[in-house]
Simulated scan of single mutants.
Amino acid sequence: MAQEVRGVIAPGKDEPVRVETVLVPDPGPGEAVVRVQACGVCHTDLHYKQGGINDDFPFLLGHEAAGVVESVGEGVTDLAP
């Protein structure tokens, strides 16, 4: 079942970030859902926020995550909940 989570969103170039509800779908083939317990927002995220990587806003920031595998999609054999 899809889950609602909170994420840090950069809505536009140099605009203030916001915490918003994001819908995470069930994992598809080759995917896993991880319950994030800690996540860093780093300098790369700052570049995205400033429009330095591309301008396809909005961006969900934070790609340095750690957590626990909750579910896996079809074909995933190297992870388990």
Score class of each variant (00 low, 15 high):
47 H>I: 08
58 P>R: 10
38 A>S: 04
27 P>H: 14
34 V>K: 08
71 S>L: 14
51 G>Q: 04
57 F>K: 04
14 D>Y: 01
34 V>M: 02
6 R>C: 05
49 K>D: 08
77 T>D: 12
40 G>E: 08
57 F>C: 03
13 K>Y: 01
24 V>P: 02
12 G>E: 07
2 A>E: 12
37 Q>A: 13
60 L>Q: 07
31 E>D: 10
66 A>P: 00
36 V>P: 05
6 R>S: 12
45 D>K: 07
62 G>H: 06
17 V>C: 12
55 D>K: 14
62 G>A: 10
23 L>P: 01
19 V>E: 04
47 H>S: 11
64 E>Q: 11
80 A>S: 11
70 E>T: 12
46 L>R: 09
76 V>N: 15
54 N>W: 02
38 A>V: 14
18 R>K: 13
68 V>G: 02
39 C>H: 06
25 P>I: 04
8 V>N: 05
63 H>P: 06
31 E>V: 11
34 V>S: 02
77 T>Y: 11
17 V>F: 07
29 P>L: 08
41 V>M: 07
20 E>L: 10
43 H>M: 05
41 V>F: 03
71 S>T: 08
79 L>Y: 06
27 P>E: 10
65 A>G: 15
34 V>P: 03
54 N>V: 06
62 G>D: 03
61 L>G: 09
8 V>I: 11
30 G>S: 13
50 Q>S: 09
62 G>K: 15
60 L>P: 05
9 I>F: 03
24 V>F: 03
65 A>V: 12
63 H>C: 01
20 E>K: 09
1 M>Y: 05
35 R>D: 14
6 R>D: 08
67 G>C: 09
80 A>M: 06
35 R>F: 05
26 D>L: 06
36 V>Y: 00
31 E>Q: 14
80 A>R: 15
20 E>R: 13
10 A>L: 03
14 D>V: 00
10 A>R: 01
31 E>P: 02
39 C>Q: 13
18 R>N: 01
52 G>P: 02
40 G>N: 05
1 M>G: 14
63 H>I: 11
66 A>I: 13
9 I>P: 01
